[in-house]
Amino acid sequence: MSKEVERLSDPGLPDHVHRKADHDPAAADKAERQVSILFMLSVVGTVGFIVAYVFVPSDKFIFVPVMGSTNAQQLFLGLGLAAATLFIGLGAVHWAKTLMPDTEEVAERHELRSEEVDRQDFLATFKARGASSGLPRRSLIKRTLGLALGLVSVSPLILLRDLGPLPKKSLEETSWKSGTRLVTDPGDRPIKASDLEIGAVAQVLPELTPGEERTLNNIAKDAVLLIRIRPEEFQLSPERLSWTHEGIIAFSKICTHMGCAVALYEQQTKHLLCPCHQSTFDVPQAAKVIFGPAARPLPQLEITVDTEGYLIARKPFNQPVGPSFWERS
């Protein structure tokens, strides 16, 4: 065999290099002391943890550079626990590295597949046992069992039916009706056109009838943004313009993309922005989508004033609010 071939063939495991602690008892004792010190630091950590739990008042705040004002009890509990656990770990690893044997050992691998004899035996056994059950021959049993198992697995699905009601038309409906007053949120006060200055924006909800409770389910569909701009700035069809009142336009606040609250109004550009995925709606153009993943404008609520001058909805929303769904036409 030539020298070159030897060079690219396996030279075998390199010689083991001994550590100082392997042959020098003094170094080994030193390592032992280091490990013990680490374990004792863990003990100190646990003591600190208990002290923090019992003696540090839970409403005491201290100033720590970088972190700022910090709850002292939480901080010391955390540092105590961190030290208590970390030093056990460091001690154990240091022990393993300095004092435990560091000679690499070699174990043989065995091919995972079974011996050919065993495989053949298994196959024969499986076939024979399977045949003895009669399943391969008795097709009536096979089919009826298949049917029974298939059907029984449906029963959990049946039980899950009562998880919730069917949607029916509820995704398409809101609490807004013809003549519903717009009330402030929070406050539930009816509002007049004069309450809104030009450039102002307000969140409103439909007025509750006496005895009615407002739930999050209602708010999730009913929330409306009122925005007042100069009437001449609208770029609306005559029909849509008639849905506004003295420059006040009302949109559903629920994004048509994924239902987040479209809460960012930019007064200068008159854009409404959804903070979730940055869909941007242009207010003068009836909340047309000018940027982002939303596909539809925010539904516009037709508003007017009642005899007392309070803003009311003239009609319910003309389309479902919120994100799209299959049944939405």
Partner: peptide, 18 residues
């Protein structure tokens, strides 16, 4: 490996503390 569990716990606890 056992020691490393405690190290991971300790480091996580430290981050959570500060």
């Amino acid at each position: 490996a056992g020691g490393f569990f405690f190290i991971v716990f300790g480091v996580t606890a430290f981050i959570a503390a500060v």
